[in-house]
């Protein structure tokens, strides 16, 4: 059995955040005595990532995703617990470790603004000590995979957000890292650019066997790339498993799509069977509790003049929303 690429055991990360009451008096008091509050960003989490895996790391804002990614890449020192990436302790920031990882944070600009990305790439080549031939080959592959073409010879300031993000990703991967930490890599991009980056991540993973830990608020990213997801909420892992299992586990509803026959059905009448979500293109979509889906479908078929009915899982967003809306204590631990 191969050893995991990422291994976290009982990781805790606590911040000490300065705290002050509003007003002049409190401001003067704080000059002499600073008050701080302890914030547990990550609370006793454990998981492993195997070589070549793409894992979605999901959670609402402030859940602890970025803290975990920063800890894994050596930017944050863990308060307690064991963290290992490629058998290195990230917080030691050893050069051999840094040469094998990358952290891409959406909208964080590492490229020099006023000159073409190709020139910034040359600096990366020097910093990572990439041999000339290998550098040219990797760059050519990245240009092809990300469809960068003429973009890398234009000053970065003249690129659109999506084009810049693609160049940022290329720059972050020139040293062919074995582990990729991607923090919202598609944030703010249009649908086409998002799809392109998604395809690229999949291709990079397949070509180089790299492991990827990805956070994203776009479920399309997760659905397209990750078989496995880890869900973190209030600093605790509340789910770690197959994406399909996540839906099964947390989706308390099903959607029933009803196509009426020639005779129209009033909305009020069909609303007796479940919550009407939409009515478009001649079909009505209902949301019903999962355990009642079969019974409701049978009733619909027997009691109403309909030609077709189908049952489906609601979008994955609904499952995630459901989890995040659930109070902490009510969420079952994985």
């Amino acid at each position: 059995m191969t050893s995991p690429v990422i291994e976290i055991e009982h990781l805790v990360k606590t911040y000490h955040v300065p705290e002050r009451e509003p007003g002049l008096r409190a401001a003067l008091v704080s000059l002499i005595k600073r008050k701080t509050r302890e914030v547990k960003a990550v609370h006793d989490i454990s998981f492993q990532v195997q070589p070549g895996e793409i894992v979605g790391f999901l959670g609402p804002n402030g859940a602890g995703k970025t803290t975990t990614l920063k800890t894994l890449s050596g930017l944050l020192y863990p308060t307690s617990g064991k963290v290992e990436v490629l058998n290195y302790q990230p917080s030691k920031r050893e050069r051999a470790f840094l040469r094998q990882i990358t952290l891409v944070m959406g909208q964080r600009n590492q490229l020099v603004w006023d000159i073409p990305a190709a020139d910034s790439f040359e600096l990366n080549r020097a910093i990572y000590g990439i041999p000339e031939t290998e550098f040219r080959q990797t760059l050519q592959e990245l240009v092809e995979l990300l469809d960068l073409g003429p973009l890398i010879t234009k000053p970065v300031r003249n690129l659109s957000l999506g084009e810049r993000m693609k160049c940022e990703i290329a720059g972050a991967l020139l040293h062919r890292p074995k582990v990729l930490f991607l923090d919202e890599p598609t944030i703010g991009l249009d649908v086409t650019a998002q799809r392109r980056i998604r395809e690229f991540i999949r291709e990079y993973n397949a070509r180089y066997g790299a492991s990827v830990l990805l956070t994203s608020h776009y479920m399309a990213d997760v659905e397209a790339l990750c078989k496995r997801v880890i869900v973190i909420h209030h600093g605790r892992i509340i789910f770690d498993g197959q994406l399909s299992a996540l839906v099964d586990r947390f989706n308390v509803n099903k959607t029933i799509i009803v196509r009426p026959g020639d005779e129209p059905i009033e909305t009020a009448r069909i609303a007796q069977y479940g919550e009407v979500i939409s009515e478009e293109n001649g079909q009505i979509t209902l949301k019903v509790p999962r355990d009642q889906a079969t019974r409701v479908t049978t009733r619909l078929l027997t009691e109403l003049p309909i030609t077709d009915v189908s049952i489906a899982d609601p979008p994955i967003e609904d499952a995630i929303e459901q989890i995040f809306a659930t109070p902490d204590e009510a969420v079952p631990a994985n």
Partner: peptide
């Protein structure tokens, strides 16, 4: 500095 600290130099 985060970006700079990620570099092996």
């Amino acid at each position: 500095f985060s970006g700079l600290l990620l570099r092996p130099l």
